[in-house]
């Protein structure tokens, strides 16, 4: 392996580690929220610093790669996409930690089984996790063929999100005393919806890296 290839492999390995860490943060967040596990929520919040450190390191390592090796063509697209993906992973981890903080700090009753059911919380997490995992596979195998399928999953998240708005506003309408808790729940769901959007951005970066196509701001239907 040539020297610059070694350096590139190092960047790939690092983004892989960060990606897996963020996936495990989402898995833990799902567990913590659904079982109201305070211990686990604490762990998530403390691991957030580790994610931040990955982002800083990747940022500077990518800068060095560009400065020293002047990458072009697919090499350039790879480094640029790694930089953007690491920023996005950090945001995703931020939202996960935000949900964990809700578990730690809220004064509301935990989500009842019935609420979890009608808000489709578990389903939402499962879609997010499958998006995150499928995009990592796509990145590693340099294959953007399933990009449109991953992007389509985000539609599922958006649907759950908008029906949650209906359900919760109805709930708040019925029981004014509980309005604050209803809003807090809404904010949790909003965070999950944002994770879905960021995951779509990652898929767009992968398509740019592999096929040099720009999907951004084009409307996901066209893909």
């Amino acid at each position: 392996m040539k020297h610059n290839e070694k350096e590139m492999k190092f960047l790939r390995d690092e983004i892989n580690e960060m990606w897996r860490l963020v996936i495990s943060q989402i898995e833990k967040t799902k567990q913590a929220l659904l079982t109201n596990d305070v211990e686990l929520a604490l762990e998530i919040v403390s691991l957030e610093k580790k994610v931040d450190a990955y982002e800083l390191r990747l940022d500077s390592n990518c800068e060095h790669y560009i400065a020293l090796y002047n990458p072009v063509a697919i090499d350039l697209r790879l480094v640029l996409s790694i930089m953007k993906i690491s920023i996005t992973l950090e945001r995703i981890a931020d939202y996960a930690a935000g949900v964990a903080r809700y578990v730690l700090e809220t004064e509301c009753q935990p989500f009842t089984d019935k609420m979890k059911e009608i808000l489709k919380l578990e389903k939402m997490f499962d879609i997010l996790l499958s998006m995150m995992t499928a995009s990592l596979v796509s990145f590693n195998s340099e294959n953007a063929k399933n990009a449109s399928r991953i992007l389509a999953k985000d539609k599922g998240i958006d649907d759950i999100y908008s029906s949650s708005i209906d359900l919760l506003s109805e709930q708040i309408g019925k029981d004014h005393n509980d309005a604050r808790c209803g809003l807090e729940m809404m904010m949790v769901i909003r965070k999950l919806e944002r994770i879905g959007d960021h995951c779509s951005n990652i898929v767009e970066e992968i398509v740019f890296y592999i096929e040099a196509k720009v999907l951004k701001h084009k409307g996901k239907r066209e893909v």
């Binding site: 072009v72 063509a73 697919i74 350039l76 697209r77 040099a212």
Partner: peptide, 11 residues
């Protein structure tokens, strides 16, 4: 050419 060449050989 330097972002997305058409040919594998160029790349």
């Amino acid at each position: 050419m330097f972002l997305n060449p058409d040919k594998e050989t160029t790349q």
